[in-house]
């Protein structure tokens, strides 16, 4: 299967099952798109007719393209057969270890964001803070269930995790005290709204956190529209100076600004560029996922605008890179040469199998988005994973699990998509969140185009 598209003056062919990417001229583009379903003589006649005014196109040139295509096919770089689909059953029976936990250290928040999936941090339940004892047991649980895996990830999440900062520090100290004994390396991350950022938190994060995610929606009027304090006041003026001070001291360590765009700011590239103007270089903007009845929900009519925005962003990023002032956008980070293995590309994020969320009480869920949905409780950190039925459901939840994805060119980039989004859109984790698919495919097209552009500028 191939995917052929034109973007920003480039003609691009993606060979789905080999991962190969080809940048081609007009003639080769036309021939490749006809090649598998049209007799060669017919292609030859069509091309000679179409390019009759082009002096570089003649019978020999067309035959040379045929020859190049056959060479690429022989090298398994074009029209490559799917060798993985038939093995999907083996994939379901694989043994997995847990390699990452999302610790919900605070089911409470000091902001009241309108679109929050966690219902102001409470996950439709009681306010709660994780105790050190629960956090300590979660670390032990991760070590016990991680097999020989050396690198382990722990994400401090909420609600607002900095509302339980003392426990965060204690959990990290405990993990550090035992990691060598068990031959493990903990990588900690933290997601914060910034309200409680101060010098002590900054120093701690710079010492212990591999990555810190800072929530900012961009322009002040956009951010303050939805991200308000409990008293109903916009939080932009409080957090932006704190974020700027934090990033200044961050040095070369990872962070990224994470925004959410809604129907209120379909021109979201302006928010990304605003964040860049504030001095932030590692950026991400996510489309809001919510009930279609919400006033800020994205609509079908928004799609062409959003597609154009993604293109504007890609072109601007190429321009800024050329000028020596680059920014990164999470969804355009694509490592074609040294990217993930096929296992990762089929299995995706590993929610429910390799990655789980832990509530303040120690209950386990497939990921942070399923917390508070009792039917998705997997067990707890004291008794272990007891709901094997749900785990098996998530094992089956991969790039080959959905009939709708059979003919999709992007499935080895999205791995079948986000289980939580599918569940929220269709009631089934192996459903398809079509709106998200459309945006995802556009982003991948832009990301690959950027790689092609950089390749040609070498």
């Amino acid at each position: 299967m191939i995917h052929a598209y034109k973007l920003n003056g480039y003609n691009i062919i993606v060979d789905v099952f080999s991962g190969s990417v080809h940048s081609v001229d007009e003639l080769a583009y036309d021939i490749i798109t006809l090649y598998e379903n049209t007799p060669k003589q017919q292609i030859l006649d069509q091309m000679l007719k179409k390019y009759k005014d082009d002096k570089t196109v003649n019978t020999q040139e067309i035959l040379d393209v045929f020859s190049d295509i056959e060479e690429l096919k022989k090298n398994k770089q074009l029209f490559t057969e799917d060798t993985f689909g038939g093995k999907a059953f083996d994939f379901k029976n694989r043994n997995t270890v847990i390699k990452a936990l999302c610790l919900h250290v605070a089911h409470t928040c000091n902001l009241n964001c309108e679109y929050c999936f966690a219902s102001q941090g409470k996950y439709h339940g009681e306010r709660a803070l994780m105790t050190y004892e629960v956090g300590k047991r979660a670390i032990d649980f991760l070590i016990e269930n991680s097999g020989t895996r050396h690198n382990l990830e722990v994400d401090f999440f909420g609600g607002e995790p900095l509302m339980n900062f003392e426990v965060v520090k204690q959990i990290v100290a405990y993990a550090r005290s035992i990691e060598k004994k068990y031959n493990k390396n903990f990588r900690f991350t933290l997601t914060t709204n910034g309200m409680n950022l101060n010098d002590e938190v900054t120093e701690f994060c710079n010492k212990e956190m591999d990555n810190v995610v800072l929530s900012l929606d961009g322009r002040k009027e956009i951010h303050d529209l939805t991200r308000k304090t409990i008293g109903g006041v916009g939080s932009y003026d409080i957090i932006v100076p704190k974020f700027q001070a934090f990033v200044k001291k961050r040095g070369n360590k990872s962070y990224y600004m994470r925004g959410t765009f809604t129907h209120n700011n379909t021109d979201f590239t302006n928010d990304i560029f605003h964040m860049a103007d504030l001095g932030f270089k590692e950026l991400s903007m996510e489309p809001v996922v919510c009930k279609p009845t919400e006033p800020y929900a994205l609509t079908e009519q928004d799609l062409p605008i959003l597609f154009e925005q993604y293109e504007i962003l890609a072109k601007e990023m190429l321009k800024r890179e050329k000028e020596g002032n680059p920014i990164t956008f999470y969804h355009y980070m694509l490592d074609l040469k040294n990217g993930p293995c096929i296992y990762k590309r089929i299995s995706g994020c590993g929610s429910g199998t390799e990655y789980m969320a832990v509530t303040p009480w120690g209950e386990l869920f497939p990921c942070h988005q399923f917390v508070g949905k009792p039917e998705y409780s997997l067990g707890n950190i004291f008794d272990g994973v007891t709901n094997k039925e749900v785990v098996n459901k998530f094992k089956n939840c991969n790039a080959y699990a959905r009939k709708d994805c059979t003919t999709c060119w992007a499935k080895l980039y999205c791995s079948g998509g986000c289980a939580a989004n599918a569940y929220n859109a269709t009631g089934d984790i192996t459903g398809v969140y079509e709106y998200g698919c459309k945006l995802f495919k556009k982003r991948i097209e832009c990301a690959i185009m950027m790689q092609v552009a950089k390749n040609q500028n070498k």
Binding site: V21, S23, E61, L336, N455
Partner: peptide, 14 residues
């Protein structure tokens, strides 16, 4: 030269 192939990690792996 009408086809330029980028260097990519070839997936056709266990």
């Amino acid at each position: 030269k009408r086809i330029n192939t980028l260097a990519t990690r070839i997936l056709v792996q266990t």
